[in-house]
Amino acid sequence: MIEIRDLHKSYQMGSNSLHVLKGINFKAEEGELVAIMGSSGSGKSTLLNILGMLDEADTGDYILDGVKIEKLSETKAARYRNKFLGFVFQSFNLINYKTAMENVALPLYYQKVSRKDRETKALKYLEQVGLKEWANHLPSELSGGQKQRVAIARAMAAEPKVLLADEPTGALDSTTSYEVMDLIQQINDQGNTILVVTHEEDIAHMCKRIIHLRDGVIVEDKKIDQVRASEYVQ
């Protein structure tokens, strides 16, 4: 599903160049749930942003679902993002003046889905994350965990090939974190490919594979026995 070969990325910090990714190689098959770990500054967020086409690599190949991603115009990148990728951010990034349902329906708006279908679909995904009754609430009326679940519903609404989660539990307490991970595991169980960036060991162990990044290179890549989050959720 995802394949990257010899990926390099550096940032220009004034006169210094900061080499963040120094040759990353990895492959993720369909249906995998991969945790990308590393301390801050290890390059894990940069890697995720490149995978999410929010940022561009300097050199190296990136193949997503058989399509080589390179030299994207803004318009094309937007279209690919809309078609292939769903995002979940640490700070939720919901549009604050839109209701939960409108937020979930927004990716479908950019897919030119009709309004009625958008609403039906948005409600379906809200139901899946257990927030159907909150459909007409604004983000400000939701708790952190609820916001993140709305964000996950929004990411799923476009039916992406890959779900990218950047510290999805970073702003949540542990109980809520496990609820969110439970949801992510359920989505993964349905066969969706998911990449989770995290620096929390317990969250990483709820995935099926852990990739350790240090100073811009992969130092460890191992399959693990998944810990089910539902064990911690009442």
């Binding site: 803004e74 937007a78 993002r81 995002f87 950019y110």
Partner: peptide, 16 residues
Amino acid sequence: TKEIGIRKAIGATPRS
């Protein structure tokens, strides 16, 4: 700006 970023992340083209 942030809203525009969100919209772009979920598939808004520059033109839209």
